[in-house]
């Protein structure tokens, strides 16, 4: 069995907006390569989805319903939430047919 932290299909990653005091390397127009987040959501998120893996049957509803694409499979095809992307909206918890996702305060993690 692979390590559960290992993500088999990594979602988009944090790539801070590249600031510079030189205009020469400042972006020419307000556009950037897709799939990158300029600022992490973890600093303002109130709630966090805590997933109970033991009873999960990998139905993938949480992954499909997540409006931010913040959930992906780990190597064992279990859902993991990306720290920087999750906004704590709770849709995954509401959609999980087995009620395995609990929304807990971010500060209680």
């Amino acid at each position: 069995m692979k390590k559960p932290e290992e993500v088999s299909n990594p979602p988009c990653h944090l790539r801070p907006f590249k600031r510079s005091t030189s205009l020469a390397i400042w972006p020419n127009s307000p556009q950037a390569d897709s799939g990158h987040l300029a600022f992490s959501n973890k600093d303002w998120r109130n709630m966090w989805p805590q997933i109970e893996w033991q009873a999960c049957n990998s139905c993938s509803l949480c992954l499909l319903f997540c409006p931010e694409g913040a959930i992906s499979w780990n190597a064992n095809r279990l859902p993991i939430v990306q720290e920087d992307w999750c906004k704590g909206c709770g849709l995954c918890a509401r959609e999980c047919p087995k009620n395995l996702i609990a929304m807990i305060p971010q500060t209680h993690r």
Binding site: P30, Q31, A32, D33, S34, G35, A38
Partner: peptide, 9 residues
Amino acid sequence: KPQSLAITA
């Protein structure tokens, strides 16, 4: 090469 156009600043 997907890009996000009209981004926030």
